[in-house]
Simulated scan of single mutants.
Amino acid sequence: MKRQFKRFCSMQCQSLYAKRFKAGGGVVIDPTHNEKAAMEAVLPQLGEYVASIGMDKPLSVYSRAEILQLVDVVLTAYFDNLRDLTPEDVPF
């Protein structure tokens, strides 16, 4: 059996991975207030996109292109809203 090595950007990330690995992948990190607000702000764009495809069309029959566009809509809206909610002086 070949050993796999993982590289982590920090001890915090390594610790989170270890907890998740021990728990069988079920660890969920509680979102911050801003992250929750950004999630809520995604809903109008998500609804608009789903409506453009057809509200009665099940997700299981979306084409690959439609799924990728859905992911793009959600992620773009989420990060745009999160960026708007984050003060400029927060160091990352």
Rank of each mutant, 00 (worst) to 15 (best):
R20I: 03
P31T: 01
S60A: 09
P91E: 11
V42D: 05
R20P: 01
I29N: 11
A18S: 09
K22I: 06
M11G: 05
I67N: 07
D80G: 06
L70W: 08
S15I: 10
R7T: 09
C13L: 11
F92V: 11
L59H: 14
P58Y: 11
E88M: 06
L70T: 09
K19G: 02
A38Q: 04
L70R: 04
V71K: 07
M11R: 15
I53M: 06
V73E: 00
N34D: 12
F21L: 08
K2I: 05
Y62A: 02
F79R: 04
A38W: 02
T86Q: 03
A65S: 09
Y49R: 00
G25E: 09
K6R: 14
T76M: 02
M11L: 13
D72E: 15
H33S: 10
E40P: 00
S60F: 00
A77C: 13
D56H: 01
K19F: 04
A51F: 14
S15K: 11
D56W: 01
I53L: 15
R3H: 07
Q14L: 04
S10C: 13
T86V: 02
Q45G: 08
K22T: 11
L70S: 09
Q12T: 14
Q45T: 06
K22E: 11
R83E: 15
G26C: 12
R3L: 12
Q14A: 06
V61N: 00
A37G: 05
P87H: 14
D84I: 04
L43M: 01
A77W: 01
Q69R: 08
S52M: 09
L82P: 00
V74K: 07
V73P: 00
R7L: 12
F8V: 09
P44S: 05
Y78E: 10
V28K: 15
M1S: 13
D56F: 00
L85Y: 10
V42Q: 10
I53Q: 12
F8D: 04
M11H: 10
G24M: 02
M1L: 10
F21H: 13
S60R: 03
G24C: 04
K6L: 13
M39P: 00
G24S: 04
F79D: 02
D30H: 09
V27A: 03
S60I: 01
I67K: 14
K6Y: 15
F92Q: 14
K2P: 14
F79K: 03
Q14M: 10
L82F: 08
I53Y: 05
A18H: 14
M55K: 12
Q69S: 09
L59M: 15
V42C: 15
Q4H: 11
V61T: 14
V74F: 12
R3V: 07
G26Y: 06
P44L: 03
K22N: 14
L59E: 14
R64I: 08
F21T: 05
S52P: 08
N81D: 15
L82S: 03
P44H: 06
T76N: 13
K22F: 09
C9P: 07
F5E: 12
Q45W: 02
D84V: 05
A38D: 06
A23Y: 05
I53G: 08
V61H: 00
